[in-house]
Write a protein that binds this DNA or RNA. Structure first.
Lengths: 204, 204
DNA sequence: GTTTAATTTAAACAAATGTTTAATTTGTTT
DNA sequence: AAACAAATTAAACATTTGTTTAAATTAAAC
């Protein structure tokens, strides 16, 4: 994958995130990437295949690093804390592609390379299950929490910050994008961690 | 607003949700609504104004019913439980428009009637604050939880089920759409309630 | 240095897009 | 019944769309 191809992919990522796949023309992408219009077909075949290739090249970024979470010396609580922070950081670093995936994945006619992404999603969901199991085996977590629901709370809370950026920046009085990212990786990650931890040790 | 106009709005809602605003042509809408193409311009002026009108006509559905949550006889815990269930049910009943708003609202060039929606969002956020305050005044909730973060967890967890419908239907082995809606209004709402309640009474 | 392949370009293509037009039908009012 | 307004239609409109073409340029191989 040469430099020009990467520029095209970066331009596509930026514009797809900002304006959506259907709201972005290949001419927009060509202009943003400073390449001739025909280069996109030349390298990627079509606009659809460009989206496909974009996902493929970014796919591995979404696999959560197992070792960071399951260090042998970690308690269940430490694994949980790591899980949440690694998860939020990983997703936030790939927020652009994740937002595109989230939006375009919900569109029926788009038959996104869903196999590979489903595989990764299930792998990541498995991590949540493993952390849960670790705490249950250690006798410190409540048994009855569904990993799917737990994962939805983690991912959903995070994604809410991606989908409502301007509203939340306003409400939280955050002016710069860097500050917003900092808020996500610190306060938001802490909130998610506290929330899930509370749920797991909560008995009613 | 006559019958034909409503059919157009319903068709637009359905298609915008399925294929996105830019992925839907006015011809698609006309066909779905069984009206002549020109009727859309005739009644709504333009495709953009159609979207605007769609939001306007559905706007009030998003205002959470205050009385259902703040019955005088309710304890803070009961208000919290009501809040979550009313919230989830309200949003689920308007999931289509909410998804459109969520997706299209993130697109920069689209200058959605954001004032009216921001107002409602803030009103609903205020409800969360009020429930929180009620519990704090009663001495039963933890003081340090941000209503914005709490709201993000509630909305985000719910929206995660809207944005990842097919994946979750697969993972949860839910086959029908009705069963999925039931799952959302029962198990999911309970999960969100348990989660938030746990956080609010949790002390570390 | 010549030949061959890869890259880059401007132009053209047909199809689809949102919107308008001008004519016709339908409904209402007098 | 006549006159008027509202609703409905098929056709046309100018752009924009994704993609292809054929020629020109650059790079690589021999």
């Amino acid at each position: 994958m040469n430099e020009k191809q990467q520029e095209i992919l970066n331009a596509a990522e930026k514009l797809f995130e900002e304006k959506g796949f259907d709201g972005t023309s290949v001419r927009d992408i060509a202009k943003e990437a400073n390449v001739n219009l025909a280069m996109i077909s030349y390298y990627f075949g079509s606009k659809d295949k460009l989206l496909e290739t974009l996902f493929e090249t970014r796919l591995d970024n979404f696999r959560i690093n197992y070792e960071l979470i399951f260090d042998k010396d970690f308690t269940a609580f430490e694994s949980l804390e790591k899980l949440v922070h690694v998860y939020v950081k990983t997703m936030n670093q790939n927020a652009g592609v994740y937002k595109i995936l989230s939006v375009e994945g919900g569109i029926k006619k788009r038959l996104i390379n869903s196999d590979s992404f489903t595989k990764i999603k299930k792998f990541n969901l498995e991590l949540v299950s493993k952390v849960l199991q670790k705490g249950i085996n250690a006798g410190v977590f409540n048994k009855t929490v569904s990993p799917v629901l737990l994962h939805s709370t983690m991912m959903g809370t995070f994604m809410n910050f991606q989908m409502n950026r301007s509203f939340l920046q306003n409400v939280l009085a955050i002016t710069s994008d860097e500050a917003y990212n900092q808020y996500i990786e610190n306060q938001l990650a802490n909130h998610i961690h506290r929330t899930i931890k509370a749920l797991l040790i909560y008995e009613d």
